[in-house]
Amino acid sequence: MARGRMNWLKLFSTAVFVFLYLPLLIVVVYSFNDSKLNAEWVGFTLKWYGVLFDDTEMLTAARNSLLIATFSAAVAALLGTLAGMAMSRLRLRLLPALVLAPVAMPDILLGVSLLILFIMLNISLGLVSVILAHITFCIGYVALSVQARMGSMDDSLIEAARDLGASPWQAFSRITLPLLAPGIIAGALMAFTLSIDDFVVTFFTAGVGSSTLPLQIYSMVKIAVTPEVNAISTLLMVVTLLLVTLASRFNKHALRGTI
C-alpha cells in the first residue's frame, strides 16, 4: 500500500520535473536551430550567437548589466554585512523590518515609488538610479546570509582574542571578518545574480541609454520572437548557473537563499 503510493508520488513528481525543464530545454534547442521561426527543426547552426555578438545594442545592454550588478553587489555587500551583524547581535526592530520589507513586497511597488523619488530629487534616470534601486533590494539577501553565518560563529573566539590583548578593531579584522567572509561572498554573489536577473525594478528606474539585458530581451520579444533571444537566453542561463554554483561553494544554502 505504502509502496504503491510512493510510486504514484514518483510518477507525478517526474511529470512536474518535465514541466519545470521542458520549456528551458526548448529555448536552448531552438537557439541552435537554423531557422528564423521557433517551430520546425531545420539544422544545427551557431549563427544566432554570431548575430548576438554583432548586435551593438545587446552588447551595450550586457555591459550595463555587468556594471550595475558589480556596483550594486559591492555596495550591498558592505551595507548588508553591517545590517546582518547588527541584526544578529542587537535587539533591533526598525532595521530588520527595513531589510526584509523590500524583499517581501511585490517588486512593482519598489519600482514606482523609487521612480517618484528620483524624479522629485531631480536624479536623472540612468545607470546611477538603477544601481541605487538595485542596492535597496540586494541589502536584504546579503544581510540574511551574514546573519546566518554570525549565528553559527563561536563568540568565545572573539573573547579569547580580546583576552590576549587584541584591540576591538584587531579582533574584528583578524577573527570576525575572516570567519564571516564565506557568508559575505555568498551574499554578494547572490546580490550580483539578482541584479542581473531583475526586470521590474529596472523597468521603472532605467532611462534612455541604460537598458539592461532583461530590458533588451523585453523590448525584443514585445515586437517579435526571434532566435537571437534564444541565444542570449542560453548564454544567460550558463552564466547564472556558474555564479550560483560558485555561491554555493561558499555557502551550501546559498542556492536556497532567496526562498
Binding site: P23, I26, T193
Partner: peptide, 23 residues
C-alpha cells in the same frame, strides 16, 4: 530550484515559444 535561477524573462519567453500559434 535550478530553473528558478534562469532569468525571469527567459522563463516567460520559453512559454511564449510554447504558446505561439506556430509552436
Amino acid at each position: 530550484i535550478l530553473p528558478f535561477w534562469s532569468n525571469f524573462l527567459v522563463r516567460i519567453y520559453a512559454w511564449m515559444i510554447i504558446f505561439s500559434p506556430t509552436g
